[in-house]
Design a protein around this nucleic acid. Structure first.
Lengths: 200, 200
DNA sequence: CTATATTTGCTAACGGTGTTAGGAAAAATG
DNA sequence: CATTTTTCCTAACACCGTTAGCAAATATAG
């Protein structure tokens, strides 16, 4: 009797319909303007139906957050495989990170908090530590320090790398227009400096 | 006849009462929870009175945003006067920027967009360009390039500096807890590297 | 095939948000 | 004292996230 299965399938379909519709709305009007009511309207169901599939609005955002972290990890993974030279790896990773941020602006905004309270603290630990490892590996190789990821210095360098990336991107994303648009030069410059610094 | 003057004074008093109350509410419960109704409640006036003094909520936020930029500029100015050596100046500026972000977390959040849509683009140009000049000056001195702030390379370095600062701070502020808390070491490390890089 | 149980999806509400129209009361002006 | 101006409030509009409760549709058991 595939009845319960069909029901599960139908229920699952509504769920992914919610997600797909929400995503479309976000692309069209941004995170700030996404609302449960608009989603309900678009999928042609009443509002409470949404709550049969997600505990609350934040749960929907969290879903996208995880998607984003997975996609980012994949992109960084691919980038790091482009070369055997750790410095080249790191450059490729930086590149991929940069591209991700602007090609998937909505994901990036959600993941790194330009306007939404989601994906903080413990919510996405698994997803975050995945891409942490990817970035860590070439840094360790370049510094040639002991191969221990818990090495304080390596941790520090990783943190610095990530911060630099995030700073460059988020300042570009908020587009303050005080200084001219320096596009990717800034990134290349900063990463170049970072790698030099890694080698002492 | 000082009647109109008294009226102006009283009106002005309500205005600053609104601002003071709003600021207290922000300190207590954060930007997200600030609402016109709460302000009205706290100053013991009805809601529309707020709109006699501010066009809308964003205008109130903008007021604080400008205050923030002015305070930051002052702090950076003071810091840069601590030494004649440009490298030391830059370190002091970085330090002051860092301290500002954590001592006046609310200002920083408002100014650099961790959660509020304000202070973008053209709104705070004057205030922003003030602290731009302060940071630019030691960078120019260190690179010893032509004394032209419109020099592309200097612009790029300034942008990098600012991005690094912002990245370090905002990642610390959102406290993702994947990596251990590396406090100010990360800042010192990054700035050290940045200055080295400036000198070629 | 009918009766019961379950699932589904709705209406309507609660309490919150920013914002504004319109009118009553108070104050200043002639 | 009458008139005009200013001050300030009530009440509403249109949103928001969230939930209680109920009606209709569906599946299950006898």
């Amino acid at each position: 009797m595939g009845i319960t299965e069909r029901r599960l399938r139908q229920k699952e379909e509504i769920r992914s319909n919610i997600l797909a519709t929400a995503w479309k709305l976000v692309l069209e009007e941004g995170w700030q303007s996404l609302s449960i009511r608009k989603i309900a309207d678009a999928i042609e169901y009443s509002v409470p139906v949404i709550y049969d599939h997600f505990e609350n609005k934040e749960a929907i955002l969290l879903e996208f957050g995880k998607q984003g972290f997975e996609l980012l990890a994949k992109k960084l993974q691919q980038a790091s495989r482009k070369s055997k030279d750790p410095a080249e790896q790191l450059k490729a990773i930086a590149d991929a990170y940069w591209n991700f941020a602007f090609q998937h602006k909505e994901y990036y905004q959600l993941m790194f908090g330009l306007g939404i309270a989601c994906c903080e603290a413990d919510k996405c630990i698994a997803e975050k530590s995945a891409f942490r490892d990817i970035v860590m590996s070439p840094i360790i190789a370049i510094t040639k320090s002991e191969n221990d990821p818990r090495n304080v210095n390596v941790c520090l360098k990783y943190h610095t790398f990530w911060s630099v990336m995030h700073g460059l991107i988020s300042i570009k994303l908020m587009n303050t227009s005080v200084e001219p648009d320096l596009n990717k030069m800034v990134l290349d410059d900063a990463i170049e400096g970072f790698i030099k610094n890694l080698r002492q």
